[in-house]
Design a protein around this nucleic acid. Structure first.
Lengths: 155, 155
DNA sequence: GCTTGCCGTCAACCTGGTTGACCATCTATG
DNA sequence: CATAGATGGTCAACCAGGTTGACGGCAAGC
């Protein structure tokens, strides 16, 4: 394989991301969850076992209005419900429905399956190195996404 | 470092991409090229030494209308010019201006600088492995971006 | 109890993409 | 040579996902 120029990094990152996300969406589509977009999966992950719109916004690194829009889409698709909080009637707790949790589980499975394919193609060691490297270079820059409270299988 | 779950891959890819692109934009901004977006740099790379809108669309993996819009933005910013082709009066050849080539060169330099920072942080070997791994997993999936004709420093 | 501040929402707008329709032009064919 | 079809480019309408600004409802602190 010819050497990869450093300048190619952004393209490689983006195309890897797209390939990964596309394959997961294909799997979700086949499993009866059509129309799921990348943002939806991200947001579901960020919601975890439940949070408010403002928390979601912080976790996704977007404005609260954008988070609210995404949450509305998720609610329309039946992935979350917005429960009133009797203790604070301003708040609406976003929490995944049964269907939402199923989608998340399928999504995680699909991600792992695609990663397994990568591992078969290039070897476990290289994939692990890639994960570790990206995790390290990810910190340090401004992180638009707070991963601290994510429990992908926590529901 | 705790092990990185495979499910984290999309987030790592995306945040690495954003960090990288943001740092390059900061550098461009500081060098007198404000307002450059990721799409602009990508498109300039894709245009290379010159191509038509339709070719640009193919290289970027988007519709020709989207490519045309991007090209218009690039022209407005003074990075490309659209020359008539006397041989085929339908065509308009998109080709980088001097300023456009300068921007591309600065952009490439900034990418390499950021990658150098990565290399210092995690070591050459890991960055090389990451590049090679991403390059391999990138092929195989549907590639939205044709890198075949790119000559980043070719101008 | 009133002010302050936070949660959520509405509205307007931007960017970067989509599809459909269309005109101008080139090209291959009858 | 005329013409039908393919191709390059543009216009218009629309969508998704993000932004900022304004604002109403509610809770909480002096």
């Amino acid at each position: 394989m010819d050497p990869v120029d450093d300048v190619a990094m952004p393209f490689l990152l983006q195309s890897a991301f797209r390939n990964l996300v596309d394959s997961v969406h294909d799997a979700l589509d086949a499993a009866g969850f059509p129309g799921v977009r990348a943002t939806h999966g991200f947001a579901m992950q960020a919601i975890g076992t439940g949070c408010t719109s403002v928390e979601l916004a912080e976790r996704l690194g977007v404005s609260k209005q954008a988070a609210t829009k995404t949450a509305q889409a998720l609610e329309t698709m039946g992935f979350i419900e917005r429960a009133a909080n009797p203790r604070d009637r301003r708040e609406r707790l976003l929490r995944p429905t049964r269907r939402g949790r199923t989608m998340l589980r399928l999504s995680a499975t699909a991600f792992r399956a695609e990663l397994s394919a990568w591992r078969e193609r290039v070897g476990d060691a290289d994939v692990d190195t890639t994960l570790a490297t990206l995790a390290q270079v990810g910190r340090g820059g401004r992180s638009h996404t707070d991963l601290s409270d994510w429990t992908p299988e926590g529901g």
